[in-house]
Design a protein around this nucleic acid. Sequence first.
DNA 1: CGTCTTTGACCCGCGC
DNA 2: GCGCGGGTCAAAGACG
Length: 246
Amino acid sequence: MENQHLQGDESSSSHALPSFPYFAVPSPPYAPPPPSEDQHSTLITALQQQPSSSACNNDDLPPLGLGPDQLAAVAAPMILPPMVDWSALLQQASLMGPQLVPGLLQQVPPLEPLDQSGENDGGDAGSSSSSKEKVVAKGGGGAGRSGKKKASRPRFAFQTRSVNDILDDGYRWRKYGQKAVKNSEHPRSYYRCTHHTCNVKKQVQRLAKDTSIVVTTYEGVHNHPCEKLMEALSPILKQLQFLSQF
DNA sequence: CGTCTTTGACCCGCGC
DNA sequence: GCGCGGGTCAAAGACG
């Protein structure tokens, strides 16, 4: 299982994934930093929850539903320095939501209230709700299988220039779908956090205009620690504990 | 054998 | 009402 993530292309991301290089994605207001092979900084944008319609005709980001509204809502994105700790960064972003990562993610307008009973931002109702409502007809699926509109959840889009579609963000993801998208030769992949109580999803797709850029859209907030991050931090924490005794 | 990916089918919202 | 596009499900197969 673990090593399945090594396959390089569109397998679920996890510990063993080749993490880098990721490059900064030049954004219009900025002078594009020339990407170099040993640099792995990334540009992060925070997006507002997609307001259902309007979102599908943007040339740059049609695939992920990032319409003009969303793009306009993206404040000056930051180019992160090289050697940024991806796990920590994404963990932080994921846990804190769009409002709370000073200097990294912009503040976005308040989210619409959730309208889905079984789900919340923490996404902790995922597995239970699935068993409840999965009864429907065969193939079950659908944008709202409970008959409701899709819930509004915090969304973040991470643009990275990478040969790999999947960011190694420290979490484990299971792919549950892939769709060909209009105006793009690259399909969009749908992933769900494999943690049983976590309902965070992400969509991964390459830009139509620049296929070297991967857009990863996270939806929801993890309600569990990042395994990889904890793994990485544990020796430091131990050391801190030790030092704090004196 | 358990986990994950693939993939076709299905459902839903939206625009015309 | 119909067609399209997007999102999800779940069976089947692949893989370690």
